[in-house]
Amino acid sequence: MSFRLKDVPLLSRSTLDRADHVRLDPDALREGWGKAKVLRVDPRGKVRVDNDQIVLDNAAVVGDGPGDAAVFLGVVEGSHLWAVREPELDGTLKDLRVLGSVDDFTAELLSTAYALLNWHDRARFHGGDGSTTTPARGGWSRLNAAGEEEFPRIDPAVICLVHDGADRVLLARQQHWPETMFSLLAGFVEAGESLERCVEREVREEVGVDLRDIHYLGSQPWPFPRSLMLGFAAIGDPAQEFVFSDGEIAEAHWFTRDEVRAALQAGDWTATQPGARLLVPGSISIARTIIESWAD
Rank of each mutant, 00 (worst) to 15 (best):
F125D: 09
Y216M: 08
G128K: 15
L39H: 02
E193V: 04
I154H: 10
V55T: 11
L185W: 02
E205P: 05
A136F: 12
V169T: 14
L81S: 03
R197V: 07
V61N: 06
G32F: 04
V189I: 07
G236Y: 04
R23E: 07
A172C: 12
A113N: 09
V162P: 03
L11G: 05
W294P: 05
A191V: 07
T256S: 15
A263P: 09
S293T: 10
A69Q: 13
A123Q: 12
R261D: 07
A19E: 01
H215C: 00
A295Q: 06
G91A: 03
E179W: 10
L264R: 08
T106D: 11
G127Q: 13
M229E: 11
P281Q: 08
M181K: 13
W177L: 13
N58Q: 08
R4S: 14
T92I: 06
V280S: 07
N51P: 00
L184A: 08
R13Q: 15
S183R: 09
P238N: 08
R18T: 14
L109Q: 10
A186E: 10
K94S: 12
E190H: 02
I286V: 11
S285G: 01
Q53K: 14
L110F: 09
P178E: 08
R257A: 09
T132E: 09
R168D: 01
G192V: 04
R257S: 07
V8E: 13
L24N: 12
A115E: 05
P87V: 00
V102N: 11
E248Y: 07
F255G: 03
D20H: 06
R30P: 02
E202C: 05
V280Y: 08
F244A: 00
T272Y: 07
V102Y: 06
Q273S: 13
L93Y: 01
D20C: 02
E190S: 06
L228F: 02
R13K: 14
P238D: 06
H120Y: 07
A83E: 11
L110K: 09
F224V: 10
D246V: 11
R97Q: 08
G187Q: 01
G187R: 00
A113H: 10
E259H: 08
M1Q: 10
A123W: 01
I249Q: 03
L143M: 07
T133F: 06
P87C: 04
S219D: 13
D268H: 13
H215V: 05
S293Y: 02
S219P: 09
S14A: 14
V62G: 11
I235S: 02
H163A: 09
V22S: 01
G147L: 12
H21G: 01
H21N: 05
P9N: 04
A113R: 07
L56D: 05
V61I: 10
V47G: 01
V22Y: 03
G130L: 11
P178G: 02
G78I: 09
P274R: 02
E179S: 15
G267M: 12
V189E: 01
H126L: 13
S219M: 04
S101L: 15
Y216Q: 04
D7Q: 15
